[in-house]
Design a protein around this nucleic acid. Structure first.
Lengths: 203, 203
DNA sequence: GACAACCTACCGTCCGGTAGGTAGAAATTG
DNA sequence: CAATTTCTACCTACCGGACGGTAGGTTGTC
C-alpha cells in the first residue's frame, strides 16, 4: 500500500496532466486522495512544492536513465541511437510526468525554476556532446549543435503528447521510427547533396 | 494609431506569452492598455474570448501562409522543403502567437477548443498529404504518416521556444537547418541501411 | 503521553464578470 | 442652425465565489 505522500504525488501527476497545474486546486487533489484539503499541508508545504517535487524527481530519473543506458558505449552512432531510444522510451513510459515537466515550468518559484532549468541543461549537454563528437568525426552533417539538440529532444517529446498506452502502437515501434528519422537527419553523406532549395520564400 | 481592440490583443499576446493565460489577469491587460478592467468587456465578451481570438487568427494565417507558399508546386520534394520552411518561418516571425497557440489550448471552452483542434488537424493534413505522396513515390522511407507529421511539426516548433529575434541567428539560417534535417530524415536511400540497432534497451 | 495523521472551520486575497453611470462625438430631427 | 437623441468608449463600484493557506482540535497507535 503506497504512503499518502506518494498517493498525493500520483494524484497530482494525474490531475496536472489532465487539467494543468493552475486549473487544479489543492482541494481537488485532496478529494481524489480521500482526505481533506488541510491534510495535504501535513505532507507538503505548498502546492508549488508538489509541482517542484514532481519535476525534480522526473528530471533526475530521466537523466539517470540516459546515463545508465549510455554506460560503456563508445561508438558515436551507437551512443546517439541509444540516447534517442532512451529519451523516447522514458517519455512514453512516464508520459504524464514528462508532459508536466515540459509544460508546467511557469508554476515554479524563481529558485525552483532555475534548479529545473539547470537539470534540463545538464541533460541536453549529454546530447550535445554526442552530436559534437559525431560532427567532429565527420559522421554527422555539421550544423549548430545546440539547435540540433533542441530539435531532436523536442521531436522526441512529440510522442508523449499523443501516445496512448492502450493504442495500437508499441513503445518500441515508435522509438524505432524516431531513431531512424533522427539518425538519417543527422548523417552526413551523399544524400544530403540534393541540389538548391526551391526559391522564393519571402515572408 | 491602432484601435483599442487591436491594442488589447497585442497586450494580451505579450502577457499570455510571458506569463501564461491563467497567470494573466484582465486587470493586468487593461492596465497595460491604459484603461480600466471593465472597459475590456466593452471590446470582448470574456477573457476566454480574447484567447480564442488570438488562436483562431493565428491558425488561419498559419494555414493561409502555407497554402500560399505551396501554390503551383508539384514536385513532392519541393513541396516538402517549402512546407518546412513555411512552417519554421511563420513560427519564428510570429513567435508569441504560435507559442500561445501551442501551449494555451486548455484555457478554451470545449467548443472553441474543438474549433482550434479542427483547424490544426486541417493544417497537419497538408503535411500528411505531402509525406504520403513522397512515400508512394518511393522518395521517402515508409513509416507511419501521422507520427512523422507530428514529429516534423513539433520539431520545427522547437525554434519558436528559444528563438531570439535580436540574437545571432537569422530566421533563414534556422529554416535551413530544419529543412535539411527533415528532408534527410524523411528520405529513403542507402544511408538508411545502417545495420541493426544496438541491443539491450530494456526499460 | 507523545506523536503521526488526520479533521473542521476559517481567513484574506484575488479574480472574472456585472451594474450602472458619464463625457463627448455623431446622427437625427424640427 | 439649434435642440435633442443616440451611440461609442470609457469609468467607478461592486459581487459572488474560489483558492491557497492557517489555527487549532481530534483520533488512534506505539
Amino acid at each position: 500500500m503506497p504512503s499518502m505522500k506518494d498517493t498525493i504525488i500520483g494524484v497530482a501527476i494525474d490531475l496536472f496532466h489532465r487539467q494543468g497545474y493552475f486549473a487544479t486546486s489543492i482541494s481537488e487533489i485532496a478529494g481524489q486522495c480521500g482526505i481533506q484539503k488541510a491534510s495535504i499541508y501535513y505532507h507538503y508545504p505548498s502546492k508549488e512544492n508538489i509541482l517542484f517535487h514532481i519535476q525534480q524527481v522526473t528530471m533526475e530519473e530521466l537523466t539517470a536513465y540516459l546515463r545508465g543506458n549510455l554506460e560503456g558505449l563508445t561508438d558515436v552512432e551507437d551512443r546517439m541511437r541509444v540516447a534517442v531510444r532512451s529519451h523516447v522510451r522514458f517519455h512514453l513510459n512516464r508520459q504524464k510526468e514528462t508532459f508536466i515537466a515540459n509544460t508546467e515550468l511557469r508554476g515554479l518559484t524563481p529558485e525552483h525554476y532555475q534548479e529545473i532549468v539547470d537539470k534540463r541543461d545538464g541533460y541536453e549537454k549529454i546530447f550535445q556532446g554526442i552530436i559534437r563528437a559525431g560532427c567532429e568525426a565527420g559522421l554527422f552533417a555539421t550544423a549548430d549543435v545546440r539547435i540540433l539538440s533542441y530539435a531532436i529532444l523536442t521531436l522526441c517529446n512529440a510522442g508523449a503528447i499523443w501516445f496512448n498506452p492502450q493504442g495500437r502502437m508499441a513503445v518500441d515501434a515508435i522509438a524505432d521510427i524516431y531513431e531512424k528519422f533522427v539518425l538519417r537527419g543527422l548523417k552526413a553523406g551523399r544524400l544530403t547533396a540534393l541540389g538548391p532549395t526551391p526559391a522564393n520564400q519571402t515572408g
